[in-house]
Design a protein around this nucleic acid. Structure first.
Lengths: 341, 341
DNA sequence: CTGAAAGCGCTAACAT
DNA sequence: ATGTTAGCGCTTTCAG
């Protein structure tokens, strides 16, 4: 690699001082037009690019915000990332997108990396429910916003979706179709949202005068398609076989769908299916999936806005808040069938 | 934010010099055990975290590699990212994942950002075919590897998949099923791979003694599901309606599938469909999709390895290479039907 | 084995 | 309007 050209060389080439070059870059209006042009010419000729690291070192913080998600293979998080990135780039900030893959150690690693980078702030969907890694992280004084999780304490902002409501919408719909009971295919119950969605399901059951025993439970090891296939197999082994299933996310539902197809069962006639997230592929599934839609892009956007507010000029006037958005049920073929009693 | 604790404070607290603290961090073996412990204690107590920016400033380059993809919403690229990330993290490097969204200006912006960050190297699937933004970027002397594209010049490495072969596999299969002609749903023809896949399709036609006129052409504006829906509608307006369709990627195929379903056509009886990429959702589609599988994770891995080789210790022994991987046809329901002449 | 000091490239006072 | 200069926090000679 050729020698890196710095501000100093540009200054010499243009016959000015380094301070002037800096001014041309950061406060162009404060410098005489003629000088500005000369400096700009030198910059172009030498191919000068300012060093972010030097800049950061002086500033004490970087121009990057980090986004740490649970699963990049889940389109839901891609949407969240899209929303966040849009906001960040509008403020000339870069986004470092990372995937903890639901591993607490990966999460801790990344958090450590962010601290070393002195990132401006981090948007995170924590994998570590104990809050251990986050508690450690808080020491560094780097602001963070929880995404898709409610922050338990008052130490920061969070943007989430009402998962209890989502569960209720799903199961209420299923019961309205005439199903006498429902199975819940959960992800790991260590995930708050899996608990909440179950909670919501129970609430819907209660509305219908049913108790907890009307909710069969299958817990998948992960929130992805293969785990869904396994859950589907488990569903098929149940007796009596459930006629309606609510899945903790669409990936799981897609997996269940595959298992049902492999067993030559029809959806929704033999089994009605509701997913969660309403990812793009839900509508493209073997049987278009009824799903609980989450305002993912909006969540990413709001989270980033909250973070910028906390790290920006008006930081002092910032009040931590917990924003809770509402999900919405999107009915499609996978439940469109009225069961006869 | 509390005052940032630096190496200096740690040194004072431990009663040693800054140089010693640095040694404890970077070359622990070179320091007396007793001293090491004392310093470590100070580090823990003060919650010291080393500043990457200061470190980089000295080193002249960062510990981050950038990955710039065309479309984060495409699971194919998520797989590529997974492969690359795995390699990077094994070498204690961070990955900055960015999405050019097929926009040349976004791409140029990101490339500029990478240059400022002095990233260790970049893996890129270029959106700008003219090579303009990359030519500009090359000045900075930052190594890069093309992913899913062949690098035209000998200025760097590339890892790609043989798209011509992929197109041939797809269309050869369709012809073998008895279809007398084939439609090709392309993405933007400005994309090399869309051209190559078409090329491959033509080759398969030629094998069967057919010429270019046997390939109907629909060009979608983007490589995503909505564009596929539009392409599907275009297919339906054709007369005679094609009986076999090869799509430039799975997202497009999924969109076409939706359009066919909306029109109550059956796949493969009324129209056979082949996709490309074999994303996870291809198998979960309304009709499981025959698709050309790309070794995406492997591509990401190899690209990262090439980059590390070029930026690592053995940099001098590095020879630029163009690795071309082979795709593979995965046959599923969407073409599983023998047409009678 | 440990300490002292130079400087990486930049910005922001301050001085002219 | 422009020049000079002091660090930001760290690594790395070079002495001791």
């Amino acid at each position: 690699m050729a020698h890196t050209v710095g501000i100093k060389e540009v200054a010499r080439q243009a016959g000015v001082s380094v301070g002037t070059v800096s001014n041309v870059i950061n406060r162009p209006h404060m410098v005489a037009e003629e000088t500005r042009q000369r400096v700009q010419a030198a910059i172009d000729e030498l191919g000068y690019v300012r060093s972010e690291s030097a800049r950061q070192l002086r500033a004490g913080q970087s121009r990057i915000i980090a986004l740490l998600v649970l699963d990049m293979a889940n389109p839901f998080f891609v949407d969240v990332a899209t929303g966040a990135e849009r906001v960040a780039r509008a403020s000339k900030l870069g986004v470092m997108l990372c995937n903890s893959a639901q591993s607490t150690s990966e999460e801790a690693d990344y958090l450590g990396l962010f601290a070393e980078q002195r990132v401006r702030g981090v948007l995170v969907t924590p994998a570590d429910l104990s809050g251990r890694s986050l508690t450690d992280f808080r020491r560094h004084g780097i602001p963070f916003v929880f995404v898709d999780r409610v922050l338990p304490s008052a130490e920061g902002c969070s943007v989430s979706v009402d998962d209890v409501l989502g569960g209720t919408l799903a199961v209420r719909h299923l019961l309205a179709q005439g199903h006498p009971e429902v199975a819940y295919v959960s992800g790991p119950m260590s995930l708050q949202q899996c608990q909440d969605r179950r909670q919501g399901a129970l609430a819907a059951l209660a509305e219908a005068g049913l108790d907890e025993s009307a909710l069969r439970h299958v817990e998948a090891a992960r929130l992805d398609v293969p785990a869904g296939r396994e859950a589907g197999a488990a569903l098929l082994r149940m007796s009596p076989r459930p006629s309606a299933v609510f899945c903790a996310n669409d990936l799981l539902a897609l997996g269940v769908l595959q298992a049902l197809f492999a067993a030559e069962l029809r959806v929704p006639q033999d089994m009605a299916l509701v997913g969660y997230d309403d990812i793009e592929f839900a509508a493209a599934a073997a049987v278009p999936l009824t799903s609980v839609r989450q305002p993912a892009v909006r969540m990413g956007r709001q989270a980033a806005e909250l973070l910028l507010e906390e790290t920006g000029e008006a930081a002092q006037s910032h009040r931590h808040q917990r924003i809770v958005l509402e999900p919405e049920l999107v009915v499609r073929e996978s439940t469109r069938w009225t069961r006869r009693a």
